[in-house]
Amino acid sequence: MDLITVSGPPSSGKTSILLRTIENFIKRNIKVGVVKFDCLFTDDDILFAKLGIPVKKGLSGSLCPDHYFVSNIEEVVEWGLKEKVDILITESAGLCNRCSPYIKEIKAVCVIDNLSGINTPKKIGPMLKSADIVVITKGDIVSQAEREVFTMKVQSVNPKATIMHVNGLNGQGAFELSTFIHNDQVHVETLEGRTLRYPMPAALCSYCLGETRIGKAHQMGNVRKIDLSDKNG
């Protein structure tokens, strides 16, 4: 079973791109399974199920979504093996821009859209920097020049990645993406012992544990203060 991790900012078009790409796998008789990670709510599993493929969703609720992802990925892989899929795709939103759910030696795809602003590639951090493939969406509604500038910005943050422009609405480029993200020589049996490409940010303070009161007296653990002194201004 090949494993592919897909992530990207909310509303960048991850699900649309995956739906169009999976349609191409189905046409080639390749069996795909999807696990959708989200925070509070998602209906996207229904869209995947409509394609007639096995799908599961995981909502992190009150936990940090990327931490939730790592704590569950091993079980997710077991599920994929049980379903006997050829490709297992995980989809998760990078919600805080500092995390990235990518695992060493597992194909990592980042989806980012042209509308998000030219400074976004710089802001996204590890999720974009360490991806193998960067898919840029919504190119059909911005100008050629903006697409070119945006591509350059992505390239300057991640020069190693293969950058593809895919249209999630009409599927232009989805076939090409499907040939890129899947390698039938990859056989993932377990993730035991594998490591993340990036450490996730440290966070263990009183608020992690359910504290709601504001004020120094209630803050414990990993707390850092914003610099509001005059020295820079």
Partner: peptide
């Protein structure tokens, strides 16, 4: 074929807008 900086094709359509 898949070089992002030397793309073969530029596209123009009337659905395209400036967003910057």
């Amino acid at each position: 074929r898949f070089s992002a900086s030397n793309k073969l094709v530029a596209q123009l359509s009337q659905n395209m807008n400036f967003v910057m």
